[in-house]
Simulated scan of single mutants.
Amino acid sequence: MTFRVENVDWLRGKDRLAKLREHVFVLEWRLPREAEFDEHDATAFHILIVDNEDNPIATGRLTQSGEIGRIAVKRKFRTLPVYRQLFTALVTLAKQHNVPLVHVSCDLDSVNYHQKLGFTPNGPVFMEAGIPRQKMACSVNQFTLPDVTHMH
């Protein structure tokens, strides 16, 4: 299956972005809707990945300050190649907009994975919605994706 990556701004893509994020975060993960949307949406750069029937399957955003977040991927598309496309597109956006450093906040169990991409822990572990999390940072020039060509 082939996917298309789109750069979308909040005004043009709000309906599709919000619907996908609500599906993943509010319906599936039961997070409060108010916590899902914030003032950064309007100024952030958004990536939307759609399938060959133009259905949104994944999204993520890059804020002006370099924070990668709001990663929402429909359950059946949670594969390394999809995450790879999403992160590659977000880091490419950072380079295009001269954002030298990207940041993520991740669950503790994915710290090792992010370190393989070039991220290093940044600050203490913190709690968010009852989940221990870690902020991590990476220079866009040090970001690397492990080879996943042997996986499907």
Rank of each mutant, 00 (worst) to 15 (best):
residue 47 I to W: 00
residue 20 L to N: 05
residue 65 S to N: 15
residue 15 D to Q: 13
residue 92 T to H: 14
residue 106 C to K: 02
residue 106 C to S: 14
residue 120 T to Y: 07
residue 80 L to K: 14
residue 47 I to Y: 01
residue 114 H to I: 00
residue 87 F to A: 01
residue 129 A to D: 15
residue 37 F to E: 02
residue 104 V to L: 07
residue 15 D to L: 10
residue 72 A to W: 12
residue 63 T to P: 00
residue 60 G to C: 02
residue 132 P to N: 12
residue 121 P to E: 02
residue 139 S to E: 05
residue 38 D to F: 07
residue 67 E to Y: 13
residue 45 F to A: 01
residue 76 K to L: 09
residue 123 G to F: 09
residue 36 E to P: 11
residue 136 M to F: 04
residue 13 G to A: 08
residue 121 P to K: 10
residue 63 T to Q: 00
residue 44 A to S: 15
residue 137 A to M: 10
residue 17 L to P: 06
residue 124 P to Q: 14
residue 39 E to M: 09
residue 137 A to D: 11
residue 27 L to R: 15
residue 3 F to Q: 05
residue 79 T to F: 02
residue 116 K to G: 10
residue 139 S to N: 10
residue 65 S to Y: 11
residue 64 Q to E: 15
residue 136 M to W: 05
residue 48 L to F: 03
residue 6 E to A: 07
residue 92 T to D: 14
residue 45 F to Y: 14
residue 5 V to I: 15
residue 29 W to E: 15
residue 147 D to S: 10
residue 94 A to H: 06
residue 90 L to M: 05
residue 50 V to N: 07
residue 81 P to L: 06
residue 145 L to C: 08
residue 40 H to C: 00
residue 100 P to W: 13
residue 27 L to P: 05
residue 62 L to C: 07
residue 77 F to L: 01
residue 66 G to W: 11
residue 136 M to V: 03
residue 77 F to H: 09
residue 54 D to P: 04
residue 58 A to L: 02
residue 72 A to F: 09
residue 57 I to L: 00
residue 100 P to Q: 14
residue 152 H to K: 15
residue 17 L to H: 06
residue 8 V to M: 04
residue 93 L to F: 05
residue 26 V to E: 13
residue 35 A to L: 12
residue 47 I to Q: 01
residue 55 N to I: 11
residue 112 N to Q: 10
residue 53 E to Q: 15
residue 4 R to N: 10
residue 56 P to F: 12
residue 81 P to Q: 09
residue 134 Q to L: 06
residue 79 T to E: 00
residue 62 L to W: 07
residue 104 V to D: 06
residue 79 T to R: 10
residue 24 V to W: 03
residue 51 D to T: 05
residue 42 A to Y: 12
residue 36 E to F: 07
residue 126 F to N: 07
residue 122 N to P: 06
residue 40 H to E: 01
residue 117 L to K: 12
residue 99 V to R: 12
residue 62 L to A: 05
residue 20 L to H: 04
residue 36 E to W: 09
residue 50 V to D: 09
residue 95 K to H: 03
residue 129 A to Y: 14
residue 133 R to Q: 12
residue 11 L to G: 14
residue 89 A to M: 02
residue 12 R to S: 11
residue 104 V to P: 02
residue 54 D to L: 11
residue 151 M to V: 10
residue 71 I to R: 11
residue 60 G to F: 00
residue 30 R to P: 02
residue 87 F to W: 11
residue 24 V to G: 04
residue 105 S to Q: 12
residue 140 V to H: 04
residue 78 R to M: 00
residue 74 K to F: 05
residue 116 K to P: 08
residue 120 T to G: 07
residue 13 G to E: 08
residue 80 L to C: 08
residue 129 A to P: 08
residue 140 V to L: 02
residue 108 L to M: 14
residue 63 T to F: 02
residue 124 P to E: 15
residue 106 C to W: 03
residue 111 V to I: 12
residue 141 N to D: 13
residue 147 D to M: 09
residue 67 E to N: 11
residue 101 L to S: 08
residue 135 K to M: 10
residue 143 F to V: 06
residue 110 S to A: 12
residue 141 N to C: 06
residue 60 G to S: 04
